[in-house]
């Protein structure tokens, strides 16, 4: 599970480089997210534009990663592809996360 992190001003941008976050990669994803978010930035945006598929284990890992940030930092998401969007919508998790259409939107709109 390759994740790339880059700090842009007060935003930590993490890009998921693989095309899926699934049961086989969920634990690795969570661990890597924890490592990368040790940098204390007010905002963390996870760009998922390369992720074509997410299953319920992958979703659980994204939720766990948000909770691990603590109550003062929210995990924002950008670039959800259609199938990923469907999983967020059907589980109502789209109401929990701040979701940006794409990364540049995410960079523009401070929450």
């Amino acid at each position: 599970m390759k994740l790339m992190a880059e700090q842009q001003g007060d935003v930590l941008v993490i890009s998921a480089m693989h095309d899926r976050i699934d049961a086989a990669g969920a634990i690795q994803f969570k661990d890597r997210m924890r490592e990368l978010t040790q940098t204390m930035t007010p905002r963390v945006v996870l760009d998922m534009s390369r992720v074509n598929f997410l299953d319920s284990s992958g979703l659980g890992a994204v939720v766990a990663s948000m909770k691990a940030l603590g109550p003062d930092r929210k995990l924002e998401l950008s670039g959800l592809t259609p199938t990923v969007q469907k999983v967020f919508r059907l589980t109502r998790m789209d109401s929990v996360f701040v979701i940006h259409a794409n990364l540049s939107d995410g960079m523009r709109h401070a929450v």
């Binding site: 299953d55 319920s56 659980g60 939720v63 909770k67 999983v87 059907l90 589980t91 929990v96």
Partner: peptide, 13 residues
């Protein structure tokens, strides 16, 4: 927030 479910989505989907 701290009680958000991290699983139990599978059969619902």
């Amino acid at each position: 927030f701290e009680d958000l479910p991290e699983g139990g989505f599978g059969w619902h989907l």
